[in-house]
Design a protein around this nucleic acid. Structure first.
Lengths: 149, 149
DNA sequence: TTATATGCAAACGCTTTGCATCACG
DNA sequence: CGTGATGCAAAGCGTTTGCATATAA
């Protein structure tokens, strides 16, 4: 009828079993607006018919990270969170520090910068992480209206 | 006689007490070549006259992070580590994935990229983290000689 | 049917905290 | 001296593991 959830179809493509627990995790993830923690997924699964065991949440998240369907980000606080994302393409995330919503931003013009760093330091850079934090448009609006109130 | 350790003098400037424990932590940090964990500092302090309590290591590291003498980096593994660094100036770190050595790289030409992201996403970006990983010159050489051996 | 995945609970590792004591300034 | 720092041990939290059971394919 439908591909109700891209995460599920990707799991299928990878030859993984579509278990009840994984469906629950997949649904929990897709209903997250922005970044989320393992605890968030666990809590979301509890609101559904069947709660998923804590260990299973972690195992599922690991699997999804391996498949590139989810990425791990480290918040400025040092906490570990996850964001759902498109597989394959190299990209970065902009995370709203107020509501947690996140947006992908593609490769950007980072390459020339990396090359400059390589030549100045002599390092051969093989990976990098750029994480951006700020206020999303909605939260900016909210903040602005509060300020003027 | 001497300012044996820049970390110590910075602590003094900040009006913090120069305790035995902090001296030990400061020495442990300055003898680290690259990034290090709280556990590394603890281990280093144990090799000296007086071991520092685990809790004190964390408290000292927090303090040093607040003072900008040390920065926290999140390794690709997700582990938390620290790197000593120059205070004030905004900069990023390049971390060797083989030996852990790290180098600071200044602000780079990131600003135009951030502006581009702001206009395309509508976010007001107020902080970012760029962490770079790769092989430092020495480890590249080592890797190369091993390959040819 | 059979390899995989799950649940449960215990173990783990890192980090923080409460509190009495200690020591820098 | 007085306040801030330390040590210790216990608690906290997120995450992982072992193992018997359940289940998707």
């Amino acid at each position: 009828m439908q591909q109700p959830n891209p995460v599920l179809s990707a799991l299928g493509d990878a030859g993984k079993r579509l278990t009840i627990a994984r469906r629950a995790v997949a649904e929990a993830i897709t209903e997250q607006a922005g970044h989320f923690t393992a605890e968030d997924v666990l809590a979301a699964s509890r609101l559904r018919r069947r709660a998923v065991a804590r260990a299973t949440v972690f195992r599922s998240l690991d699997l999804l990270v391996d498949l590139g369907l989810v990425e791990r980000v480290d918040l400025p606080s040092g906490d570990h969170a996850y964001v759902a994302c498109e597989p394959d393409a190299h990209h970065h995330h902009v995370v709203c520090s107020a509501c947690g919503r996140s947006v992908e931003v593609g490769e950007l013009g980072l390459r020339p910068i990396l090359e400059r760093i390589e030549s100045s330091t002599g390092f051969a850079i093989d990976s990098h992480r750029l994480e951006l934090f700020g206020l999303c448009p909605e939260c900016r609006a909210t903040a602005a209206s509060k300020r003027s109130a």
